[in-house]
Design a protein around this nucleic acid. Sequence first.
DNA 1: CTTGACAGACCAACCAGTCGGTCTCAGTGC
DNA 2: GCACTGAGACCGACTGGTTGGTCTGTCAAG
Lengths: 211, 211
Amino acid sequence: MDLKDRIIETSLTLFEQHGFHGVTVNQIVSESGTSKGGFYHHFQSKDELLFVIHDYFISYVLTKAKETIETNDHPTEKMQKIIKSFVKVFDIYKPHISVFYQESIYLKPQYVDAIKEKRQSYKAVLFDVIREGIEKREFRSELPVEITVMSILGMVNWSYKWYKKDGEKTIEEIADIYVDLILHSLLTEQTKKDARFKEYFLENHLTASKK
Amino acid sequence: MDLKDRIIETSLTLFEQHGFHGVTVNQIVSESGTSKGGFYHHFQSKDELLFVIHDYFISYVLTKAKETIETNDHPTEKMQKIIKSFVKVFDIYKPHISVFYQESIYLKPQYVDAIKEKRQSYKAVLFDVIREGIEKREFRSELPVEITVMSILGMVNWSYKWYKKDGEKTIEEIADIYVDLILHSLLTEQTKKDARFKEYFLENHLTASKK
DNA sequence: CTTGACAGACCAACCAGTCGGTCTCAGTGC
DNA sequence: GCACTGAGACCGACTGGTTGGTCTGTCAAG
C-alpha cells in the first residue's frame, strides 16, 4: 500500500469519526506517518482529497448497479440483486459511505458536478427497475415511482448511521431483511405467490421461527 | 420575534446550506442584523447555538410521538399516526432536521448526552409499537424488531435529503405513501384484509388510479 | 545529473471569542 | 416632575490561536 492510499485510508477513518472539518491536515499527516510535503505531493488540497474519496465510492457502486440490470432477470430479481449488492458494500466501504453522505456539503463547486452526475445515474437505475416492474405487473401499479425510489434509497442508505461490522446481525442477514421488507411493499399479491420469488421472503427462510 | 429567535432562524438557513463549519459567526451576525456582542449576549458559544437547535427539534418530535402512543389504538393505527405526524414535521422543521442529522457530529461532548438520551427515547417508542404489533398478531412475526425500526427511521428520515416544500407532492401525500409502503411490509395478510385499516392503503384512496 | 517522492519549518488568513463601551429604560429618592 | 443609578441589551474593534497551504531542501533511484 503506497502513501497515497495510506493517506486516504487514514482520512476516511478520521473523517468518519470527527467530520471533514473536525480533522486537520496535520492530524492526517501524522496519523498516516508522513509530512505536509508528502500530503501535498499527492493532493492539490484538502478539498481534492474529499473529492477523490467521493468519486472512488460512487463510481464503484454505480458500476455494480449497472452490471446488475444488464441481465434478463425479472424486475423482482433485479431489485433483489441491487439491494443485496448495495447493502453488502457497507461491509467494505462504510467509511466511504459515511463521508459521502455526511461531508458532501463541503465539496467545492468545481467538484460537485462530477459527483452529482453519477449520483443521478444511480437513481436512474432504480427508477428504471421500478417502472419496468410496474409495466410487467410484478409491482403494484398504484406506487408513485419517485417516492418509492427515495424510500428504498433512504432505508438502505440510513444503515451508515448505525451499521457495525461486529454487530448482532451480519451484513447478509440485514440485506435479506431489507429485501423482504421492500418486496413486501412493492409486489402485487399475485406476484408474492410466485414460487420463483419465495426464497426472497423471510417467512420461507430455513432460519425463520415457525410456530 | 426577538433577537435570539432571529439568530436561530438565520443560522438554521445558513447551516442547512453550507454546514456548521461553512458558516462563520460573522456571517450569522450580519445576516440576522446584529453584532458579535448581540450574538454572545444570547449564546455562550457557537457550539451552544448548535445544541439549542438540536434540543429544540428533538424535544418537539419526542413529545409528539409520546402523545401518539398514549392512546388505546391498535398498533397499526399507532404506527400510521406516528409516521404521519413525523413526516409532517418536515414541513415546518426541515432546516432543524437537516442540521440535526448533518451536524450532530460537531456537538461538543458536554452536549451530546442530553441529545442522545432523547434520541434513544424516540427509538424506544417505535420499538414498543412494533413489539406490540407482533404480539397482537397484527404485524408479521418473522420481522426482526431492531432492523425493522431502523428501516422505518431511515426511510422517513432520508426525506431531509430531497424534500422540497414546493415540490410535486405535498407532505400529506408523501406521508400517505410512506404509510402504505410501511404497512405493506409490516402487516400480516390477515390484518391487511381488516376493513378498519383499508383507508391506509393507496389502492383504496379516492385519488388512486384504477383501471 | 536529473527527477520524483517526501520532509518540515514557516506564513498569512481566518475566525471564535473578548472586552470596554453605548443606549435605553425601569426603579428610586426627593 | 426631575435627576440619578444600575442593569440588561447590544455594539464592534481587536486578539490570539489555529489551520490550510507554501517553499526550500534532502535523498535515493535511474
